[in-house]
Design a protein around this nucleic acid. Structure first.
Lengths: 113, 113
DNA sequence: CAGGATCCGCCGCGATACTG
DNA sequence: CAGTATCGCGGCGGATCCTG
């Protein structure tokens, strides 16, 4: 269930063009980062990023779910419990996160002198 | 010249939080990808991504320049000539591009069956 | 507890026209 | 050729209230 065709970059001679949409969300990489460390309940995840609203966090989670990167497991009980984890495809994104992390550290070091 | 403080993610226990702003632009990764292959004039770059407006391409280039990832070399001549290339910091972003490329290929393969 | 439903300001992104 | 200058729309991102 892809969100196809934003401005047809498909014919672009650039492999990364197609996935820009995935990572452009304001908190996508952060969410994926936390979920790469451990499966988390909604509340736990939200507590790790308190500046994000419930509503918006839900939205981004749905988007990532539609992209097939995260899995949403609902436990039918009271009170409700929902756990988020990376799918197989989501785990393939981890190298990107690692590279990003490495770059981020170098970037911030270089930038505070 | 960082664009500080959008919603203070700095205290977030996540290394990648700080650079989400850099990669959130609609064409950032594509621009960096092309420039990682070779130094390019404005027109050349624009021809490689024709669906992007001159105006907007200029904007994103300025942003990446302000972030210190690309270098803008102006040749004072008529007609004018401007070349864009990666800075040292920009080159440190290449591993991210490589990881993204790898992921993109796997992602798109998996998604058309 | 984990969301769904609304409402809304702002700016990302684009189209178009004009310059040195 | 490589930009600036305007103008405008749509939707991202957020606040706030309500539910099973």
């Amino acid at each position: 269930m892809l969100k196809q065709e934003n401005s047809d970059k498909s014919f672009l001679d650039c492999p990364v063009a197609g996935i820009q949409d995935i990572i452009k969300g304001k908190w996508t990489t952060v969410i994926l980062y936390f979920l790469s460390q451990s499966t988390l309940r909604f509340g736990e995840l939200n507590r790790k990023m308190p500046m994000v609203t419930q509503a918006y966090l839900t939205k981004e989670l749905r988007i990532l779910e539609n992209y097939g990167l995260i899995h949403r497991e609902v436990y039918p009980q009271v009170p409700p419990k929902v756990e988020y984890s990376l799918t197989a495809m989501g785990k393939k994104f981890i190298p990107v996160l690692d590279a990003l992390e490495k770059f981020a550290i170098e970037y911030e070091q270089d930038n505070q002198k």
